[in-house]
Amino acid sequence: MTISPELQGRSYPAGPVYDVGREKIREFATAVKATSAAHFDVEAARALGYADLVAPPTFAIIVAQRADAQLVSDPESGIDFSRVVHADQRFTHHRPIVAGDRLVASLQVDSVRSMGGGAMITTRAEITTDDGEPVATTTSSILVRGEEQ
């Protein structure tokens, strides 16, 4: 199945709220082998001026990939998840994510380019609080390999 170039410009509205919990921040920080006390100890985070535990710089991927899932699981997208390779990733933080944040993410397909028998798809997730405060913008390119690649 081929990737439709018409995916470019498609957008998906914000999905359900993602509640950022302390234990999730601790779990994610452990998983990326992060050691900063601000991920684990509320007092250490407050000493740096944050309201609560601070998420690691790539934590937003959890929220962004939930938004991406809308595209990948969209039957019209033609994306075979097993043939997807992550090509690039960027996080722009408008402010750090902290425990207690209630986040939502809308997704935009910025570009679709043919690459051999496959396609490179670049998406952008705008992550805000459920009140609309900008928190992070993530951009991600995935290469969907063609059958012969």
Binding site: S36, P57, D88, H93
Partner: peptide, 29 residues
């Protein structure tokens, strides 16, 4: 790829002394 990206940036956050000081972080895999 996101594991590698996430683990690599710890060098930066440890150096900066504040994980919230990373304003932008990007890579190609």
């Amino acid at each position: 790829g996101m594991f590698t990206m996430g683990a690599a940036v710890q060098l930066v956050t440890d150096w900066a002394g504040d994980p919230g000081a990373v304003l932008d972080y990007q890579t190609r895999f």
